[in-house]
Nucleic acid binder design. Structure first.
Lengths: 227, 227
DNA sequence: TGACATTTGTCCGTATGTATA
DNA sequence: CTATACATACGGACAAATGTC
């Protein structure tokens, strides 16, 4: 663990423990260099991390200020596994098969003749409450030993355990209306509105490893930008 | 203009001009220090900016790589004025009045007895094509001289011209179905799905200056995260 | 497998610029 | 005007990951 990440985590813990008022001042860089026995550069890197995550903001000549929880507690644009990192996340597998895939899908994965795709659908639950419906495609050629039992954990973790390195995670968000099946699985009204996140997970060298459509039970996501 | 921002802009211009292949390598830090006569720290700050904007990614021990346009060209989670920065943006004002506001709205703005809110609705157009419908509330007390003629430009610009400093811009995204009026204004089918972005614009010291509901004509937004 | 050069990542000290109070 | 605090910039050193021989 690098020093600046360690410092950042300590500061985040302090903020989440409520040691600072919303919009209140954080100690200055000079104080923090002494507190953590680190150089100003390192402190600044840690604070910059906190800024990116929405915990604080700063004003030149004035100081660092703690943001209200609304700015960092809400769902940001992350994948399910990130979002519910410390929660009790489980899955129900609705389908698992091997398919040809549509022309567009095959083009996206750069598949050759004969190469196929895993295809599966899962309900994702947090504390036994459904939070999302997932439909995923992955190339068989990359994951020869993949099987249904891997579907009960995090597929991202499976990929990383295979020593593949995930380099990019591209997301697109769109509004959808739940069909009757989706509504039933997510315990919502039929036709209710929801956000759909489309992921593309890339390995090194532009290799597309996974294409996922995640239909959320919730109809809200938040984002923050600071000038 | 600081040096690292200047360098970042030059690099972005080169990437957008197509001087690099997607997933291709960018020159290393050492080369760039010589090219721009800057220290390694400065080059790294510039490259870090490019990373944040989705133009490049890097791998320790390997190098910097240019992302495909999909990762930086699409609509990110920005306000309209950012998104269409260099386009021909105009407005049609549908309504402009001064209101009490709901209890929740008054609480959000911390209004005292008697204080009121500007309220207006606009169609926002790019090259005369409607891209969004906007409904906004702003406290009268902050902007005594605000009037309808200010609605034809950017309200953000108006705020900054008044020497107010915008510190935060909080956004929430949700799925909605266009009602008949919205659909007509946006030239879409009634009941078609769309994304709605709810903004809260804060000045210094937690002063809420603007609350806006922006209903998009488009049903897509994208985001990127890199490991 | 191991050694090696290359490249990015982290960290330090220091100096100067600039906005704020 | 002045002190303070964050922002930018430089130079140097070592660590860690990568690719190659």
């Amino acid at each position: 663990m690098s020093k600046y990440v360690d410092i950042a985590q300590q500061l985040i813990a302090m903020i989440e423990a409520g040691e600072y008022r919303s919009w209140g001042v954080l100690e200055g860089e000079l104080y923090l260099t002494r507190l953590f026995s680190a150089s100003r550069v390192t402190i600044r890197k840690a604070l910059s991390l906190l800024k990116d995550k929405g915990y604080i903001h700063s004003r030149q000549g004035s100081g660092y200020y703690v943001n209200p929880p609304e700015f960092y507690k809400e769902q940001h644009l992350t994948t399910l596994s990130d979002r519910y990192a410390n929660k009790n996340l489980s899955s129900i597998v609705l389908a698992f098969d091997i398919v040809e895939g549509s022309d567009e899908m095959r083009r996206m994965f750069h598949l050759f003749e004969g190469q196929k795709l895993y295809h599966f659908r899962r309900i994702r639950l947090v504390d036994d409450i459904p939070v999302a419906l997932e439909e995923t495609w992955m190339p068989v050629s990359l994951f020869e030993d993949f099987n249904e039992s891997d579907l009960y954990g995090s597929v991202m973790k499976y990929i990383e355990n295979r020593n593949y390195v995930i380099s990019h995670d591209f997301k697109k968000i769109q509004a959808v209306q739940l069909n009757s099946e989706a509504a039933r699985h997510l315990r919502k009204e039929e036709h209710s509105l929801s956000l759909q996140i489309i992921h593309k997970v890339y390995l090194l060298k532009s290799v597309l490893a996974q294409y996922t459509i995640e239909t959320q039970a919730d109809n809200q996501l938040s984002a923050l930008s600071i000038r």
